[in-house]
Design a protein around this nucleic acid. Sequence first.
DNA 1: CATACATGAATTTTT
DNA 2: TTCATGTATG
Length: 702
Amino acid sequence: MSAAPAQPVGLNPAQLQAVHHLDGPCLVVAGAGSGKTRVITHKIARLLQAGLQPTQIAAITFTNKAAQEMRERTKALVGPRAAGTLVISTFHSLGVRVLREDGPAIGLKPEFSILDSDDVASLLRDAGATSDAKLARQWQWAISLWKNQGLDSDGAAAACQTDHERVAARVMKRYEERLQAYQAVDFDDLIGLPLKLLQRDEAARLKWQDRFHHVLVDEYQDTNAVQYELMKLLVSHPDPRRTDRFTAVGDDDQSIYGWRGATIDNLKRLPKDFPRLRVIALEQNYRSTGNILRAANHVIAANPKVFEKKLWSELGEGEPVRLLECDGEEHEAERAVAFIQAMRGNGGPSIKLSDFAVLYRANHQARAFEQKLRAAQIPYKVSGGQSFFDKAEIKDLCAWLRLLVNQDDDPAFLRAITTPKRGIGHQTLGKLGEFGAQWKKSLFESLFAPSLGAVLSTKAVGSLHEFGRFVNELSYKAGQTCGADDAKALLMEWLREIGYEQHLFDSEDHEKLAAARWANVLDFVDWISRRCGGEIDNLGGMSTETPKRSVLEVAQTISVIISLAERGDEQDVVTLSTLHAAKGLEWPHVVLAGVNEGLLPFKSEDDEMTPQRLEEERRLMYVGITRARQTLAVSTLRRRKRGREMVLAIPSRFILEMKLNDNPHREDPREKLRRMRQELAAKSAAFAAQAAAAAKGPGPGG
DNA sequence: CATACATGAATTTTT
DNA sequence: TTCATGTATG
């Protein structure tokens, strides 16, 4: 189901141009399914061929998954040796790299810690003195948007419109102070701080500008203002022959992340900021049939164009796009299931379940489809659903394990020392953080500093020491304990000592929920201890005992194991996904569900629909249509349940924009009838012949 | 008055 | 699915 190179071999003329333009700024406007990853990987190969070292090339993506895929595909082209040392990473991991090397120039110790989204939320609850999780999330969102626009708390305070924003800006100020005290950064800082560094520190700037001879940026339309500035600074070079050597690959028609700070201005500005810019459009699509592509082109034609392009395909007209008109979400789900069953019935068992996807605007729409698929006994997966490892209780335990491995992991320290609560509050921790920042020590190192008594009460120091001793002892034991059974015993003992079960039942008002969480914890313990080995594995008839590893060793590899486990086995199941999460993927058969006014385009009560918003919604529709290779069914509600009665629902304007009846290649109805009769006759003849052959006697193989 | 259950509504997500 | 609001019951 994921993007496979559908293009036969070689490169088309536009792709060749893009690949061979090496010494100046290059923008590749890559339509959906036009082979952009192929262009990037071939261009990397070309750059190596032209004499660049792998370490002098940086390819930047937005997700780890995309980076991984790009590395794989490059490896297939240039071999593992060169591919291994190429810098292929996300904006964020490149930022980490820059900061680990040169962070001290802007007052950040190299061992700074990176807070994840949950860490940030709890820090904000703390900084804003609230227990309201929803409010904290709102602040988090606002602060992140500000940071994505390159604003700090002062800049944000100046830009505030509402009281709510002014409060958020004040919280942001406190939040910045906390981050500084803990020597921690959030995800947005991983872009913002490297930019600040390169702007302010000339030595660092020259070093990084000199390091990369060519920078490639994937999904360029998703960059935000800060990422653009960082890229611009990174590719500029004092030597005029070496400056501005980059390849930006993107599609303005697939820009769907404006709401989180991505700005299409970055595309519009590119020709102005780089007058030598070479713009190359990839218009041949290797994914979808003509009917699907035409619908997509018609829809997107209603948007103003930044760079003119029109997709075409050599894959033939294919099947017409189907329109499913449904009475309510249940009915819609039933029809989607019927669509899948009918396709599989017609095409025989050769059509896999993983060839199907149901795409929709909002997560809650998955509910009806899940229900009907379950009823039909069709296995499915919901993309973007909360993973086992994202659950709070599992993250709690992972933090503890991380701390056992590395006592200087400050975010892990903060989470572990506060879960369960052990009488050490943010007062104490704040002091400890300041102390650590002052002496350039991790929080854990600071614990046992003799001079800590000067800033903290004896009682506080006592509980800190107790925690420290407990962690040290547990860490030691974890290093000694091998094998599944002993590991499990140790982990259960540990949970009992920190009182985790009690903690769950105390913090959850519903006993059932707490019990469910505890069950997750037990699953997790099983999962970890199984990885400590000593068990009998039965692989392909070979019975072997897995090698024994200590709990500590397993904990060391936990993040790797988790990412592998999350990938999951590529199973043959139907995909349910939001349109956003479907970007970059493709399926032979796609159902685009809930294509109604209010949902797609989305409209909420309290904000008005600006033209920009509508255009982004239209791009979302475009992304949805272009996910399909062979068949596309667009489903819309004619009626919808509202309370107990059915009310009228309005099909999306985008359906009209697809101009489904405006097909120049449409078969004459009389012609179609004749063709179908012929096909039927041929089929019955074949069937009769088969039956006759079967009646004569058993064929070869019975 | 407070708690429990039912009912209805619901943007989109990565690092 | 989850989250919030409203009604019913103790």
